[in-house]
């Protein structure tokens, strides 16, 4: 499906670029975004290495095992046929913990690791496994407890109570994650992998 997303976005930007007369900007973007992507990547890679290292220490000392046993009861509801003592579940637990704390930069490397382990455990070929879908949807919807970036921007722009939106954020993110997960679980059941 990513081939359609990628293709359609570029084709549309050429069509829109011609019709809005902004081809100069589209052309610049085509040439420069690759370099920007490398910049972002270096930043991300540094974080990935640091968290990979910290994770490994936490793993060897038995810390991640303890944390993942806390998540087990909830995880059993949404992940089917997952090895709850395996590496994939450990990485999933750490990713969820990082998301809850609002540490997006730490959550991404842990999430990538979880996908790698899921790929090994579910022995996927070229099609995503049920657990991979559930896990990715969990991350794209992301449960947030404290939206720190939003609060600091609100404060900067003169909000009297930057945190007064918290209950709305909680309800909204809970419902959106809920809908995403329910849809994923239902579709997993209906559209059995051949």
């Amino acid at each position: 499906m990513m081939k359609w997303v990628f293709g359609i976005m570029i084709i549309l930007s050429v069509i829109f670029g011609i019709s809005t007369g902004r081809m100069d900007k589209v052309s610049n973007a085509a040439l420069e975004e690759g370099a920007k992507a490398i910049e972002l990547f270096l930043y991300l890679l540094g974080g990935m290495c640091v968290w990979g290292g910290i994770m490994r220490i936490a793993d060897k000392s038995g810390l991640t095992g303890k944390l993942s046993s806390l998540f087990k009861p909830i995880a059993k509801l949404i992940f089917k046929n997952l090895d709850f003592n395996g590496k994939a579940f450990k990485a999933i637990s750490m990713n969820v913990a990082a998301n809850l704390l609002g540490l997006g930069n730490a959550a991404t490397p842990l999430g990538i690791e979880a996908m790698h382990e899921l790929e090994k455990e579910d022995r996927t070929k070229d099609s995503a496994s049920d657990n991979m879908i559930v896990f990715t949807v969990l991350n794209t919807a992301s449960i947030t407890l404290i939206p720190t970036t939003v609060a600091s921007l609100r404060l900067k722009h003169g909000s009297l109570q930057p945190f007064d939106i918290l209950p709305c954020v909680w309800i909204t993110s809970l419902l959106s994650v809920g809908i995403g997960l329910i849809l994923a679980l239902v579709l997993n059941k209906i559209r059995r992998k051949k």
Binding site: M2, D126, S127, I133, T136, A184, L187, N188
Partner: peptide, 8 residues
């Protein structure tokens, strides 16, 4: 190595 992300 996933190519088909199904209904993700």
């Amino acid at each position: 190595k996933i190519k088909k992300i199904r209904h993700t």
